[in-house]
Design a protein around this nucleic acid. Sequence first.
DNA 1: CATGTCGTTTCAAATAGTGAAACGCTGTTT
DNA 2: AAACAGCGTTTCACTATTTGAAACGACATG
Lengths: 260, 260
Amino acid sequence: MSDVLDRPTAGATSTLDLALRIVEFLAYQSGPTTLAAIATEFGASKATVHRHLRGLASRGFVRQDAATGRYDVGVKLMVLGEACRSRFDIVTTARPELIQLRDETGQAVTICALVDGDVVVLELTQGRTVIEFATRPGTKLALHASAHGKIWLAFGPAALLDAVRQAPLPAWTPETITDPQTLERDVAKVRERGWSTAPDEVISGVNTIAAPVYDHQGRLVASIAIVGAKQFIPADPADAQVEAVVGTARRISRALGWRE
Amino acid sequence: MSDVLDRPTAGATSTLDLALRIVEFLAYQSGPTTLAAIATEFGASKATVHRHLRGLASRGFVRQDAATGRYDVGVKLMVLGEACRSRFDIVTTARPELIQLRDETGQAVTICALVDGDVVVLELTQGRTVIEFATRPGTKLALHASAHGKIWLAFGPAALLDAVRQAPLPAWTPETITDPQTLERDVAKVRERGWSTAPDEVISGVNTIAAPVYDHQGRLVASIAIVGAKQFIPADPADAQVEAVVGTARRISRALGWRE
DNA sequence: CATGTCGTTTCAAATAGTGAAACGCTGTTT
DNA sequence: AAACAGCGTTTCACTATTTGAAACGACATG
């Protein structure tokens, strides 16, 4: 899923914005990337990209592979990410509750937030069975195709649903909802019952149960979920599993100052 | 320790460079910071800082506290840091060995790298006793006052030792080496025996034993260390402890393709 | 009420950034 | 071996962006 979204942003300077998008693009590549490919991706000249890469490299955000000349993300992102990790209430406040949810259900537990228009995995607590894809921290999840995404469509800013309405809904698996009206009905159901599920929609054979986390002002600030194979989390989930997720989400919300 | 180093960097554009330094500065603050304080810190105008903050905020690298108007680091750093974590061989390759070292010695274990001129903690494996300060990932360590720093002075680029020679050596504790000639002798000793120690130099009552990690080209790419109270790691460390650290560093180096 | 400091905005002036084009290098193809 | 393609790097005339002094309204403080 490419994130090279050249969308206009209020007050952003084009020079800085391009540089930030370049470093983010590199962070999501699987290996070093040629400067020419970066230039093509962003529709910028090689000279401009080269200048940005030098600037980013001088501060450690980017590095150049000496053998191939290709560019890669630098360690500074990881370092700064660690340096500021404790600054995010959601993650530190939620962690004990998420570990308890994992212990109670045995499934992998994830917490997501809306970051720059995307629903992103902030932290993963591994379950008995290891699920890597789509749960690794940093991963962006499709709004229409994931349980987390549906929570955000149901309880998040209205602009999210508006944006999804206007875009095609790509299929990740044969079960992914791609019809806008089916998605609207599903989102309405999520809103009604307070939790979401997405059996087979991201990965075949895998299901997720997600619930919303609110802050002291009643705003959706995160979503949490258990993730596991369908044999452990059936398409029609057990009440106990749903209650475990919803209950944990409520406790985290209360810890953040939320009042029902 | 302020890192607002306005040092000239080859090929860096000043606009981008200032913005990167601002986000890094925010990452190391303990809470939201006023725009005016940021402007003062970097000697830039409030209008310029405002523009950069808006640009950084539009991509999630910075956020503004709605109640106070102050600026804080955004979750995007943490997210991207996680997204690219697996891309750093050193950390993933070293992890099993570091866990084993921790199990063998019982002490906290850290791995550091040189990032943008600083020795920075990349990862921490907690020991039996918890030591937080100066070992949290993202923390920058003084070259002259830490065991990790001395490894880099002894085995890293000569420019590091040159830079330290030209700067005053601030004292962190009464035991910190502040005399340049004493430091040179200490670094020479580190080079000779292949490991370093720094009892009481960073924190009183705490000691560290560090050793170098080389890559397939024989370059220093990281340093690893055990950290603990002096009652567990005496100023004159036990041979077994030294051998455990040095041995682990060698195994990690070999895993990275190093040949003695 | 006066004062100080904040974040935000404006816009003339200044400066930085842009990108077409060229270059040398390297790997691939013929 | 020669030709070709694509790479990263550099140049510099031109363009566009960025800069920052100044002003503003909001808010906290004395």
